[in-house]
Amino acid sequence: MKSLHYTEIIFYKAWSVLKSECGRTVGGALWWFVDPLLSIVIYYIAFGLILQQGGVGFVQTLCVGIIFWRWFQGSLTRGAGSIIMEKPLISKVYVPKILFPVVSVLVDTFKFLVMLVVLLSFLWVSGHPPTITYWALPVLLFVQLLFIFAMVGLFAALVPFLPDLRNMLNHGLHLMFFLSGVFFSVDQIQSEKLRQVMMLNPMVGLIAAYRRVLLENQWPEWSYMFPLAFVNLGGVLCVGYLLRRFDRVYPKIMS
């Protein structure tokens, strides 16, 4: 009964956030498309045209990198503040605090899924039709979702104690963006050792895997993906414990 009630709240709240967001701008939902498109254009100008990075298929490589990266980045940027932003509510009623990061991730995941359809359509018309390896896509999406939730939950849980984390997060994400192979491929890195170190960042491995599946008709490296899935699952469980542990501490530290 209780969990059904909370599920209802999660979906209603997520829907209300999406609706609110659309109401704030003249463009409304159009921005869900325009935002990622503009960032693709910007990086194409910078790396494709000016630095002559790309070569054949650079646009597709870039698009895949950016769409999946933005899912992570957008979720984390919003989600890190998801508990601290609800301060007025948290001091008035009891709501399990885990609801807030869940709503936040749900909102960004919905926006991402809309963009994913656009991306897949674009790949199809530009010469990359669906192949058998598309079956790996749900697995990759699930692994990334676990990673996103673990990170969002961790920051959401800790930011009320140390609001400064949010400022650091922006710089961290900026750095991570440059290291995640969004506008280049990790295979371009000469040093084997450096490449291995970079693969410790799950976004590097995930973006590389998406490119294999969507652009090269190859299966992901399962020997990398399965351990990653388990680590992320562990992360999600730890974060769940953390949020439960502090569930009724937040109203005290926020009042």
């Binding site: 009630h5 709240i9 209603y12 709240k13 209300s16 609110s20 109401g23 509510l89 009623v93 709501v95």
Partner: peptide, 22 residues
């Protein structure tokens, strides 16, 4: 609690639903 969870961009009805659920 009065106005728990109220959001400026939602209609009165939607706010009543959200607040009532909370």
């Amino acid at each position: 609690s009065l106005q728990a969870g109220f959001e400026a961009n939602l209609t009165g009805k939607e706010n009543a639903i959200l607040s009532g659920m909370l």
